[in-house]
Design a protein around this nucleic acid. Sequence first.
DNA 1: TTAATTTAAAATGTCGACATTATTGCATTG
DNA 2: CAATGCAATAATGTCGACATTTTAAATTAA
Lengths: 233, 233
Amino acid sequence: MIKTRPVNDTRGDNSALKVVGDLKQDILTGYFKPGEKLKMPRLKERYQVGVSPLREALSQLLIEQLVVVENQRGFKVHPVSREEMRDIYATRAEIEALCIGLAVERGDDEWEAGILAAAHTMHKFGDMVDKDPQEWERRHQAFHTAIAQGCNSPTLLQVRRSLYEKASRYRNLWLKKNMANSNVFDANQKEHQQLIDALLAGDGEQARELIRQHLLSPSRALEKTSGLEELAD
Amino acid sequence: MIKTRPVNDTRGDNSALKVVGDLKQDILTGYFKPGEKLKMPRLKERYQVGVSPLREALSQLLIEQLVVVENQRGFKVHPVSREEMRDIYATRAEIEALCIGLAVERGDDEWEAGILAAAHTMHKFGDMVDKDPQEWERRHQAFHTAIAQGCNSPTLLQVRRSLYEKASRYRNLWLKKNMANSNVFDANQKEHQQLIDALLAGDGEQARELIRQHLLSPSRALEKTSGLEELAD
DNA sequence: TTAATTTAAAATGTCGACATTATTGCATTG
DNA sequence: CAATGCAATAATGTCGACATTTTAAATTAA
């Protein structure tokens, strides 16, 4: 029996690594607003660590472009903008299409099984009445990740994950807007089925086009809303 | 008149940011070998700063996957492996093809001019007798960057740069092996001309295929060499 | 000699302290 | 009243110190 360890088990890690996860979550979920100044006293209080681990954590989020720094003026949450949203979503769509194209070429039976399993998990959730957006998003992402895994390239998957996280702040807005709207979820379900069909048929070109449209729809929806202004730029 | 500032001007930056550049250089050029332990006393001595800025710098290189960390055992240079080299180069080829495909769709006259300018700068260097590999690589990269710029996507270009840096350690091996071999440089020159022709003709598909082959050739060459073993894994 | 154990040395990760720099609030002036 | 200048308040970035842990060396035992 292989001993696995939960993804959020941070026992052997140092303080910085522990705080990276929490801080990232707080930024992605919007607890810290875009553009907001991240003052050390507040962070020390919230995460119960000194400045050294905090600065290490912030240095990591700096490279992931979730925070920005200005000398002698500390750290801020990376601001949001329509332009950035467009660019991130467009890039994500291309990267995801790339993953899928390679996956169709390289994917094996185990890959296909993983997709069907994840699809089932998603489908079950669709029946629920109390749609917790976070849990829905978890399963939704698990489904797409199962597909992308088929590309079998750690480097590419790393790029993919990074873009997914960058997009999270915008996606959370979209989720708030649409969690009541069950049409959206039904349409999603349909698109997923089309995607699965194309994948199992080995039609890479079709799958690539489907995923592009699928990934861009939240972006298109957000273009029209005024939700972005709320998040000070 | 706009006041520009040289890329390596680090006056307003904090110590960590200054040391990031130097440390990265030292890792990419192989001054610190893959897998080598990065001990604080040595780093303090070399970069003339305390542990705090050092740990911040290392935290950034951690996300860029140039170093790895183990709790209570400090930082190490990220090890190299044939597998990683293959994956990085393959991913880079796909990303570069993606950039170029978009660039052909979106590029304007200024873009084309930039390519020709960079090509000229490269060509001039080809005539020189004393081929400094570093300078050659600078111009080579400037040429490819000029092309990729046409995609007009900061996010995608960021991904591209990150992969370029990850590949640097392997590329430096290749450069050492081939700096005497002028056949290689001539072949390169030819491939560049083909690429330019395809780009100016607007043939995206052709350009994408050319760039894939172009980027993969160092990887293929390195597959055969024994150079990797020198770098302890 | 090899293996195990103890001891000593060195390195890591974190905090508090301090100098420097930014920001805020208040008074002064035009 | 607006704008400017000044003081006091707060925050940043860096270092040295310290407890903890790892690594290396020395010693002992088999």
